[in-house]
């Protein structure tokens, strides 16, 4: 039982093969990358498969991060995952970057809530809050750092993600400060594989989670009046 995991949603290009029986990474690679995922991802998969001495037919499924993150980046990963899945005849499953960031903390200790926050630029973060057993306390959304901090300001919160520091800086005065703040740029690819293994292919579709509408407005300018 093997799972292939891909992540190009944030500032990394990561690939790993996880052996589910032993819960070990058979082969993998991860490179910090702000752009260039479209060139790097598929050759990286080729190399990781060579290192793992595995073929696509050996995988039970393919896991991929669906966002939130860079629109272009997450489409690179999803396009590749769906392409691999189509040829291999195996399901592709989507994992959110927010869950992948928070889960290692929850796996270690789920008694304290975790706020995953990804820098969405212009003073905003993509955020999701997790509680006991990984239960969602605040559903994935985009919010200003101030709103995110206000919503998350409850006892003993742990912050994780590229937006963790931004949220901590906006913490409301007088509220109990976060117990930890991990400014991680991208999730651990092994955890993406584990979450992908646990996901239900019927609901965890490999579809983008943008959390932001496309920048477009209907146009009615420049029309000449008609009778």
């Amino acid at each position: 039982m093997y799972i292939l995991a891909l992540d190009t949603a944030l500032t990394a290009c990561s690939v790993a093969v996880l052996n589910l029986e032993t819960d070990s990474v058979v082969a993998g690679d991860s490179v910090f990358m702000e752009r260039g995922h479209a060139e790097a991802l598929v050759p990286m998969v080729e190399q990781v498969l060579r290192d793992a001495r595995l073929h696509f037919s050996d995988f039970d499924r393919i896991a991929v991060t669906v966002g939130p993150g860079s629109f272009t980046g997450l489409r690179v990963g999803i396009s590749a995952a769906r392409g691999f899945a189509l040829v291999a005849g195996k399901p592709a499953v989507g994992v959110t970057t927010l869950a992948a960031l928070a889960t290692p903390f929850l796996a270690f200790d789920d008694s304290l809530p975790v706020l995953a926050a990804i820098d969405a630029r212009h003073g905003h973060v993509f955020m999701q809050m997790f509680g006991t057993g990984g239960r969602t306390l605040i559903a994935p959304r985009i919010a200003s750092t101030k709103e995110a901090a206000r919503a998350a300001a409850m006892g003993g919160v742990r912050l994780v993600g590229s937006g963790a520091g931004l949220v901590a800086d906006a913490w409301p005065p007088g509220e109990q400060a976060p117990v930890s703040c991990e400014t991680l740029a991208a999730p651990d690819i092994a955890w993406i594989a584990r979450l992908g293994a646990a996901a239900d292919p019927a609901t965890a579709e490999p579809k983008p989670l943008y959390l932001r509408p496309p920048d477009a407005k209907p146009q009615d300018r420049a029309r000449i009046a008609r009778v």
Binding site: F71, T72, R75, V76, S79, A80, R82, G83, F84, V87
Partner: peptide
């Protein structure tokens, strides 16, 4: 349009590698 080109080309690369 680069966003669409990336989707098509990446998919083709994945198909080419897997097949």
């Amino acid at each position: 349009l680069i966003g669409g080109v990336i989707v098509g080309l990446t998919t083709a690369k994945a198909l080419a590698l897997a097949a």
